[in-house]
Design a protein around this nucleic acid. Structure first.
Lengths: 161, 161
DNA sequence: GGAAGATAGTTGAACGTTGAATTATTCCGC
DNA sequence: GCGGAATAATTCAACGTTCAACTATCTTCC
């Protein structure tokens, strides 16, 4: 039958072309280098992982320096489980406190303590330096703009935090 | 004295300007999204972390599918310690074997087994798909080129693997 | 040719992350 | 207003990573 003679959809996957391959590997190398540099700086100077610092910063930017856990998880780009563990550690340091939400019996509110805020203020300059050295000192203003746009294309819209 | 009236070098760190801030956060969100997608796909479909897959691919590309550990560490962008642990796990699966280097008594040669090569062949299409969906389907050809150049600027030269 | 230092690789303990399971509360439709 | 589904958050165990310590070999240079 002619029906059975139709050409099969290719089993061959759609490989990356040469340009894509180059871009992917270049991106991989860059993103690993960036994360290693940032992580290393924060670990050395403040003894916290990068994500923990992000959590502190998101809190420091929130009204009353306080956020629902799920909200904080979203803004700090981490899973709830990860955030739970991280906040536990940061609570042990006295940088964050947790209390039940008055509005929602299920919710917890995390807030930055004065000590936590002081830590952010102390840590921030070194962190910004690392970011600058690793990224912005190496890019033209045009590339900075391109980087923003590429990031937004990948996440599907402007980043709102 | 006029000398003492000179303005002090600012203690204020050199903060990111608005464009840099946007680019940095956009990059952060994108890189986390990418890593999460790639990692998730590989974990679900092949039960290995992303780095383990990279290790297998670098080996598969090497002459005789074999490399010195330190060489493999460099190409797969991981520390020696990490690689040691990773290769141990992959060895347990029968995907890699290790043997002493004939040239250098300190060296170890890691090589991909037939099973390991078969695993790469099996895993690759799903991985490429994930990469394509997460990145290249969302970028214009121009942006792909820009991404490559930005990555190279950050790592300080073309990526050679 | 022997000591000092560099290099290759591994190991173990401490730590962070993951994913599934669990508990508690709220929301929704009838 | 009641039962079932959805949501919020945590916990636990398994796993991967890190960093420092360690062993073994090689290189250098006097």
């Amino acid at each position: 039958m002619s029906r059975s003679a139709t050409i099969q959809a290719p089993v061959q996957p759609h490989w990356l072309d040469e340009q894509e391959q180059l871009a992917w590997r270049s991106y991989l190398a860059a993103s690993r280098a960036i994360e290693e540099a940032i992580q290393g700086q924060l670990q050395r100077d403040a003894d916290i992982p990068h994500i923990y610092y992000e959590i502190l910063v998101r809190l420091s930017e929130a009204p009353d320096r306080m956020l629902r856990m799920s909200d904080l998880a979203e803004r700090s780009l981490s899973s709830r489980s990860r955030l739970s563990h991280a906040v536990s550690r940061l609570e042990e340091r006295g940088w964050i406190t947790r209390r039940a939400s008055p509005d929602d019996g299920r919710g917890m509110l995390a807030s930055l303590t004065e000590q936590g805020m002081a830590a952010v203020v102390k840590i921030a300059p070194g962190h910004v330096n690392a970011v600058r050295e690793q990224i912005f000192d190496r890019l033209t203003p045009e590339q900075v703009k391109q980087l923003q746009e590429i990031g937004e294309a990948i996440v599907g819209g402007p980043v709102n935090f």
